[in-house]
Structures are given as C-alpha cells and as structure tokens.
C-alpha cells in the first residue's frame, strides 16, 4: 500500500488543507463561509478519488454534490439571510443533550459496523478498471445491484413528487398572462391610465437626477416623469430654475 511520489505529494498537500476546511466548517460564524469550506472539502475529495483512479466517482462527486446539491444549499442560505449573522439561540429545549446522545449512538453504531465488516480479498485496480472505469462501474450498478438502483431511483422520484405536492398551492384566481395584462391596460386607457411606462426624468447638461422633470416636444415639463414620492414631498425641481442655472454656468465661463 505505497503511493507513488506524485500521489503522496498530492495527498500531503491536500489532506492538511482538507482538515483545516473541515474544522472551518464547524467553527466559522457565517453560514456561507461554512458552505464554502464544505465545497472545498468536496472538491479535494473528488481530486483524491481521481488520483486513485476512480475517475467517474470523482467527477460525479463534483457534478452532483458540489454543482447541484451544495449550490441549492447556497441558494437558500443567500436568500434567507444575506447580511444577518445567524442567530445562535437554541429554540428546542435540551437540544444539546439530545444531539450529543444521538451523535454518540451513531458513533457506536458506525464503529460496530466498521469493526464487524469483513471484506473479500481485494481484486486490484487493474482488474476492476479493465473494461474502463465507467463501464466496470455500470456493470456492477446495473447488473449486480440493479434492484437497489431501481429502488433508490423510485425513492428519489417519490421524494421529488412529495416536495412538489407539499409546496403546491392551488390557484384561486385565473393566471394573469402578458396578454390579459395588456388588455386590462388598454381597457383602463379611457380612465387616463398610461399605456406605456412612465417617462424617465429629464437629462440636462448639468443635471440628470430623479428630481428633474423631462421636457415634452413642446418644451413643457412632464410632471409624471418625476417619481410620485418626490412630487408628494415637494422635492421636485422646476425646469425654469434648472435651465437658468445652466445658462448662468455656460455664460459665466
């Protein structure tokens, strides 16, 4: 069980970093940083797999776990708490004790299984990868373990359907499509509602802020181009004053 020079170097570079990242996962404050630590561990694991000639496993690890599962995790984390540092108060009473107990139990079970497990003599990589790694894996998965594969597939599909059903909301009113919205806008025209978006604020040589009204083709200020909030607060500027100040600047120079 000796590794070649390259593989040993790879291991001794990656393994300490992986341990650091794994510890980071436990101890960093922000959830996104923890997720990044986990991603680092996963990618390093994939590199290790590939170094040990399990190319398919390594690549799938990245595509499925890092690319899809962790990405969805990150997605939720970012949407839920963008800048809030996460609250560390425990909401369930006695959570810590129960957690410790269950963790201990899991540890004992795992230790028992590992201690009890008996492996057949190793066949060797040469034999396992004889028909290329993906083909060899496919023969095992879809030959020897096809039932287990199918069962897992059915389970996953059921879980996905369950998620769909649980998050499904019945539509109470008809869907508003682009067409219905356009029609309702046209129908509202006689009531003085504009068909087009509101005009943008005015652009002048010295000023293009939100509080400056645009000018229509006749040179009159367009009231609606200034946001309603500013108009109600009385914060819009008059065109006359703006043009006057521009003229003063131009003539002053």
């Amino acid at each position: 069980m000796t590794a070649t020079g390259g593989e040993a170097a790879l291991f001794w570079v990656l393994a300490p970093l992986m341990v650091l990242a794994a510890l980071g996962l436990l101890f960093v404050r922000r959830a996104v940083h923890a997720a990044m630590c986990l991603v680092f561990v996963m990618v390093s694991l994939a590199i290790m797999y590939i170094a040990q000639e399990a190319a398919f496993l390594g690549v799938v690890q990245v595509v499925v776990y890092t690319g899809a599962v962790m990405m969805l995790f990150l997605f939720v984390l970012m949407l839920v708490g963008v800048d809030a540092s996460d609250s560390l108060t425990e909401t369930i009473k006695g959570q810590r004790g129960i957690g410790l107990l269950l963790g201990l139990g899991l540890g004992i079970v795992l230790a028992g299984v590992v201690a009890q497990a008996a492996f057949p003599p190793a066949a060797g990589l040469g034999l396992a990868n004889e028909v290329t790694n993906p083909v060899g894996l496919a023969r095992i998965l879809f030959g020897d373990y096809v039932l287990a594969m199918e069962a897992v597939g059915v389970l996953l599909v059921t879980a996905a359907m369950g998620a769909l059903v649980l998050t499904h909301r019945r539509r109470l009113e008809p869907r508003r499509t682009q067409r219905t919205m356009a029609e309702s806008r046209v129908r509202a025209l006689p009531r003085g509602v504009s068909l087009t978006p509101q005009p943008t604020p005015g652009v002048y040589a010295l000023n293009n802020a939100m509080d400056t009204p645009a000018l229509d083709p006749a040179g009159e200020p367009v009231e609606a181009s200034v946001p309603r909030v500013l108009r109600i607060r009385g914060q819009q500027r008059s065109v006359g004053a703006l043009l006057e100040s521009e003229r003063a600047t131009v003539e002053g120079e």
């Binding site: 398919f56 690549v59 595509v63």
Partner: peptide, 12 residues
Amino acid sequence: PVAVLYVLACAS
C-alpha cells in the same frame, strides 16, 4: 474515460 463529465464538472 469520463472527460466530457469533467467538462460539466468544471462548468458547474
């Protein structure tokens, strides 16, 4: 043998 999957992995 899984080079194209590797491409997908890099993209993801």
